[in-house]
Design a protein around this nucleic acid. Structure first.
Lengths: 162, 162
DNA sequence: TAAAATCCCACGAAAACCCATTGTATCCCG
DNA sequence: CGGGATACAATGGGTTTTCGTGGGATTTTA
């Protein structure tokens, strides 16, 4: 895999009344360097109560990986079903959203609910992908390292939120 | 294989009295980026009680793949029979339908029966292809991951159906 | 000629687009 | 080194366009 450009850094942006959010420009930069699309793919994170996001090129890569896996084990009927399930989760349970010239997406209502995103969205780069959190949920999650919570607290203060 | 443009996302659309359904625009976009046809191919899904759909260009690709598979195992009589069966399913048991300027197809009665589609059609992207479900059947199927059923439920709610 | 498919127009809601403002970081030049 | 100008990012609001959908009219098929 070894993607050249990695998502890193953090930012806290507002979700407005229409459900629009600015994708931080440093994340957009990575998306556009990886491929030339001005779109991101959103999905529920498998482990955390947040959203996972990446660029379409990464989605294609992930898909190719699944394909190769199937061809190896094609004989087993169990493998076939598992492949179907994974494919459904990877593609049906995700949404591709374009961002406009000012770098904003319209957060799809379904994703907004799945990620429990309110009127603040915390962006965290995680290398191959990035995450979008409701900052309050991150602060409450016991699995999150304290240092990372400090970052969240800093971003909140910076913005003037308690 | 590694297709560049992949089907992803979900939507729930109405089937009207005439049997017309809108193909979600984000799926149409993929069809038209893969080839320049404004047509989709419908077939009964091999494993699930739903329809499988894709663009004509993909149908050709799939055919080529089957051909190559046959050539590899040509010696075996079983392989020959299996090839014939798969070929029949892939082509005789499928229908190519155009969509009009507003993006609607007229769902062929036979496909509607095979997929048990009522007055609601749930579209699910699965990468190379997409699926069309009767949402009630999906909710009942034990092989479908719960997270995906959540999506179906959300789409139903969104539309005001219980 | 009846039934079915295609075409056409129309409407409401949602999404995409455009423009304007603010704040912040950067640059340039005295 | 300071201060003003500049560029860009994030955000607010209004307007236009698209999408999904319904219904009627016209054409094609059996």
């Amino acid at each position: 895999m070894a993607l050249e450009h990695l998502f890193q850094g953090s930012a806290l942006n507002a979700v407005d009344g229409k459900g629009r959010v600015s994708i931080p420009s440093f994340l957009r930069g990575v998306v556009e360097r990886r491929g030339d699309a001005r779109t991101i793919v959103l999905a529920k994170h498998e482990a955390f109560p947040c959203l996972s996001a990446y660029d379409p090129a990464y989605a294609a890569l992930k898909h190719a990986k699944l394909e190769r896996l199937l061809e190896k084990e094609e004989t087993s009927p169990d493998a076939e079903l598992e492949y179907q399930q994974r494919n459904l989760m990877a593609f049906a349970a995700s949404e591709e959203v374009p961002y406009d010239s000012s770098g904003r997406i319209l957060m799809p209502p379904m994703m907004r609910r799945k990620g429990q995103i309110g009127d603040l969205a915390l962006f965290l780069g995680t290398g191959e992908t990035f995450q979008i959190w409701n900052p309050d949920l991150l602060l409450k999650d016991s699995r999150i390292p304290e240092d990372l919570k400090d970052i969240a607290r800093f971003r909140l203060e910076e913005r003037g939120v308690s």
